[in-house]
Design a protein around this nucleic acid. Structure first.
Lengths: 216, 216
DNA sequence: AACCCATCTGACCATTTGGTCAAGTTTTAT
DNA sequence: ATAAAACTTGACCAAATGGTCAGATGGGTT
């Protein structure tokens, strides 16, 4: 067993990841101030002092959680690079964003919290990485418009609509569930939501949806 | 006699309103836990003890702020009652929601925060008032669909898309502003955003937008 | 065995904060 | 004028919380 050299780093990273997972959930549920390091430590099953051994301050832990989420967001961006057809690219992007909302609702909430409070921790990311990503995608969408392949709208607002709508199912999951007779979405409900979101947005910019949606 | 000789209801209410205004801003910026009664009192220009004379607990003050916002949301609901044409009704509703996002961004943020954290304070409102409102509007939209006046989608998801998108411009105003070269939206930017949101959503459900939008 | 070093933890502390209270001050009613 | 009621506020407190620290534990190396 134990592959010689790297026995510790793996367990160390496992433990750090367990703390990060606990932190994501607690931060999402209670906000930065509302969450306590004691709660996170309890949820991770370790003493508080041990948590502070791996993450010296609450803010360092929080910052790591936010950055992890940001990376997940960016992964969904590939859609725009690989597909040249606007209908397929947008459908694929919406698919991925909906899947993230379902798989990582807590991450989405932490991100929303951070931005709503003025992005005190990740302002740099907004101004650099997110700004660059957004600018380049706007250019792609604009080129589709210029080529007459979709209706003329400001690409910025199309992106905001996609972000807002897909993340709504994560950030407002409690409200959505309450209005769904208190039941969480099942597979069918998620598929229906994804289908309707794609339908409205694609048709909204003049891209008729065929029988398929461009992603598996 | 000398029953409840309410001296100056006007000044009393004025002061309560001033506290509520301060509270809305501070709660929006720092969240429930992050906001302190001291901050709110300072912002309202009164001693903390005086704030607690009008609102016995922090939670009572917060609860009042959330309920006030909820009432504002509901006011925008009239669109659906008065207009029978789906394009005009939806356009008018979107117009009002965008105006609220511009006029009351802090209220929207407090609401978002509350719902994201599981609606501990206003769960009753979600289950009763909001549930009833949503159900009745879904029925209206469904009737339009049944009459073949708009495309077939689940009315629920259309409503969520309108909420998510319009509130995005309030809740994520910091991100939107950062991506807008650090500049807040001016009149033109708000008009453009409102126009594009209406365009995509109306066209998205098969309602062609004519030259006008149904509201001034 | 002897040593090193990463990891772990109970006990502890300084600061923050929601809320109280008693002592004032102002307004209203008689 | 006088009493009562409403309002204001500085000082204070108990509880919660982020973070520290000295000492313990355990695995690996020589």
């Amino acid at each position: 067993m134990t592959n010689g050299n790297f026995k510790k780093p793996s367990t160390r990273n496992q433990k750090k990841q367990a703390i990060l997972d606990a932190a994501e959930k607690i931060f999402a549920e209670y906000g930065f101030k509302g969450a306590t390091t004691q709660m996170i430590a309890d949820f991770a099953g370790i003493p508080k002092a041990n948590l502070h051994y791996y993450f010296p301050t609450k803010e360092a832990l929080y910052s790591q959680v936010v950055q992890n989420i940001f990376d997940i967001w960016l992964e969904a961006a590939d859609s725009f690079d690989q597909n040249m057809d606007p209908a397929i690219a947008l459908a694929s992007y919406i698919n991925k964003k909906m899947e993230i909302s379902r798989a990582h609702p807590n991450g989405s909430k932490v991100w929303a919290n951070e931005v709503m409070h003025g992005a005190p921790i990740i302002q740099d990311y907004l101004e650099t990485t997110l700004k660059e990503w957004t600018t380049s995608r706007e250019a792609v969408i604009q080129s589709w418009i210029d080529e007459g392949r979709m209706d003329k709208i400001d690409p910025k607002h199309l992106l905001y609509m996609i972000w807002a709508t897909t993340q709504h199912y994560a950030d407002f999951v409690h409200q959505v569930q309450t209005l769904n007779d208190g039941q969480p979405f099942d597979d069918g409900a998620w598929q229906a939501a994804t289908r309707d979101v794609k339908k409205i947005i694609l048709a909204g910019v003049g891209l008729q949806t065929g029988g398929d949606d461009g992603d598996h």
